[in-house]
Amino acid sequence: MAERHVVRLTVNGESVERLVEPRKTLADFLRQDVELTGTHLGCEHGVCGACTVLLDGDPVRSCLLFAVQADGARVGTVEGLAHDGLHPIQEAFHDHFALQCGYCTPGMLMTVHDLLQRSPSPTREEIRKALAGNICRCTGYHAIVDAVEAAAARLRAAPPREAAR
């Protein structure tokens, strides 16, 4: 067995230190070692987007990153989107029936969070392209696009204090 490495990072603003095998993915690290199970695994080869988290503010596939690589980084997960209650993006998803089983939802939310940071007023087509790397098998996407439009409007009106980043 390969030598284990100490990994120190912050997750949703909290310091975390664990000893891990180099091969452990960041996704498994978050789910098993940090016990934040909101980050989901749908494919483990970078296609489905369910495991999307923020790494130093940028969206990444946590299944395609080893935990050792995140040493020293800031990681944001769905659990950190809002301190209590729901983030405006989460509220918009609720209002617009933009989730069904909820399995893709955490990755979807992190992707939307990134999109709206960079592009506060996206068109429906831009939203659809931005979500193209997040598979939702339940909704057919229409309601998610509605929710992102609504969240964008809400965030333009009243940006929240950022928790995850």
Binding site: P59, R61, L64, T111, A130, A132, G133, N134
Partner: peptide
């Protein structure tokens, strides 16, 4: 090339 989360890395 892929999607935003792919291009981040």
């Amino acid at each position: 090339v892929g999607h935003p989360a792919i291009r981040s890395r």
